[in-house]
Design a protein around this nucleic acid. Structure first.
Lengths: 228, 228
DNA sequence: CCAAAAGTGTTGGGGATACACCCATGA
DNA sequence: TCATGGGTGTATCCCCAACACTTTTGG
């Protein structure tokens, strides 16, 4: 919406604020889940939204994302990546907020949240079941999912969705869930091994079938690797 | 730099502002050029920087980028893409500014700027000759160049650096300049034709050698196309 | 011995790369 | 006729996709 000095809405908002919004993903029960909060105040009271908050003047944007994430989940270290900034004038009806969206990935060992009283209403929700959200958060979530999909195919980002030790089928499953398509087992194994990303570190135990070998990533730092 | 309530620099800045910075590219004389302005005021007086400015409360972030670009160059329509937001606390020593960076591409027919008095000190400069800039603008420029390189290889973005009608060698030259490597002429032609992106629209005239066929893009809207 | 998931090789086709000569025009 | 850049085909290699059976364990 275009506004200028002739428009009565000019200076509808006296100030602009910057905020971060977080798309926090984990694979839970064979589904891609995202962290959602229930809003406590008007104008979106009791609607769902992505977690997030205002950027303080003394913290960098990255620090803000990290702090908000920690305050809401109790998790200190996680893979975090800035996605895109959403800056429509009307995205928040009560004030002018420019939001910088982040994607955060955590593995399924870390999904139990230590929420404080303040942040009690925070939930994991399968992305496929996310309802209409407050603000433009459906748009942000859609953007985040699409970034996640594409980064899976050309980086080692999957390591952030896996526990320290994992079987190859577990890894393949993550690709299948997020890319929504089945992969050929033999070709997948060939590809992953050829990239020389993982070390064998043991064997599974106590399963009622042939136990899988367990692997671990040699490096967990972000790298460009063509996978598909 | 981390700051908290115990730190004397807490609330050093009372407000935060959001701004856009523009990395405007064109191919000029077989080099990738970027638009630079000379800063008029302290603390970076007479240093060079990327063009840009504060976001107003009544305009979206995209609109701001478009307006700033128009005010500084007189150009109304150009390919524009948001890159990344830079949010370090200390990036501007005089106040807290979060900057949303954009890349803008223009073709070499449009490089003559209609600058007003206010924006007189604006220049094209080869990226290879860019000096140390104000703020964190070298970092922003580096990011923009790397995005441009990668997008060249998997989208049709090159159409924004070419005039309406162009020869295939002209197009190949752009790839070679930006990617900094030579390409095989026959393989390049094969690849481009196989993608079915362009139409033949005439022939060059008045050159002291065999005239090239001229082509035009069928669609100039952003598309994903694997080129290399 | 049965159920369940792990693990293992080969083949064919398509796209990428490497490479050298003739063509059309203006001066 | 010469200088300049435009335009053209083929052979090779490598990577990707398709595909089915055997192995190992717990119950």
């Amino acid at each position: 919406m275009k506004k200028n000095k002739k428009n009565p809405e000019f200076k509808k908002y006296k100030y602009s604020f910057a905020a971060v919004d977080l798309a926090v993903f984990a694979i839970i029960k064979n589904e891609l889940n995202v962290l959602m909060v229930k809003i406590k105040y008007e104008p979106f009271k009791s609607k769902m939204s992505l977690p997030g908050g205002r950027i303080r003047t003394y913290e960098s944007v990255d620090e803000c994302a990290k702090r908000e994430f920690y305050e809401e989940t109790g998790i200190k270290n996680a893979y975090m990546e800035q996605l895109y900034s959403f800056g429509g004038v009307e995205r928040d009806p009560s004030t002018r907020i420019i939001s910088i969206a982040y994607m955060i990935l955590i593995n399924n060992r870390d999904i139990n949240l230590k929420t404080t009283e303040k942040y009690k209403e925070i939930y994991w929700m399968p992305v496929s079941e996310v309802p209409k959200l407050a603000y433009d958060h459906n748009k942000i979530l859609k953007y985040a999912v699409s970034r996640l999909k594409s980064k899976l195919t050309y980086t080692n980002i999957v390591c952030n969705l896996l526990p320290q030790k994992f079987g190859l089928s577990e890894m393949k499953k993550i690709y299948e869930i997020i890319l929504s398509r089945e992969l050929d087992k033999r070709n997948f194994r060939k590809k992953i091994f050829s990239l020389d990303l993982i070390n064998e570190v043991g064997r599974e135990a106590g399963v009622p079938h042939r136990p899988s070998k367990l692997y671990s990533f040699k490096k967990r730092s972000p790298m460009i690797v063509e996978i598909f």
